[in-house]
């Protein structure tokens, strides 16, 4: 009995060790950029930050806030070999890697652009 318990504990410990040793391989953000918060804060709070801001921006018209899905995409999308931007919700890309790992489906990109905007002559995208 005791042996089985010990074995179980041992397996749990080794599983945790394996997890710690293999962090998710996420694509790097654009060089020279700094996130609006520390990674630990972003990992935990980004849904709340975005949900809070979406109402302020959409309904009240407050622009230029810290949390911005557009800016997330601008920094975290990567380019394919031919230079075309990859969607952040494509498998292996920044948003999707983590969300697949925790089995959460982000709905954002059913409506929001998942690639950065192309700068047009008219100004901001």
């Amino acid at each position: 009995m005791l042996a089985r318990l010990l074995l179980g504990l041992l397996m749990m410990a080794s599983a945790t060790a394996a997890l710690a040793a293999e962090p998710l391989a996420l694509p790097k953000a654009k060089g020279g950029t700094t996130c609006v918060e520390a990674p630990a804060v972003m990992r935990r709070d980004h849904p709340d930050m975005l949900k809070h801001q979406r109402d302020e921006t959409m309904r009240l018209g407050i622009r230029g806030a810290k949390a911005s899905l557009k800016e997330c995409v601008a920094c975290h999308s990567t380019a394919a070999a031919d230079g075309a931007p990859r969607r952040v919700d494509d498998p292996g890309q920044f948003c999707q890697s983590c969300h697949a790992y925790v089995a959460v489906k982000p709905d954002c990109f059913e409506c929001h652009a998942a690639v950065p905007g192309q700068k047009t002559a008219g100004g901001a995208p």
């Binding site: 557009k70 995409v73 059913e110 409506c111 929001h112 652009a113 950065p116 905007g117 901001a124 995208p125």
Partner: peptide
């Protein structure tokens, strides 16, 4: 289902 949205104009099914 929509594709090709502009960053300033989200739109979806």
């Amino acid at each position: 289902a929509q594709t090709g949205q502009q960053p300033h104009l989200p739109r979806g099914k």
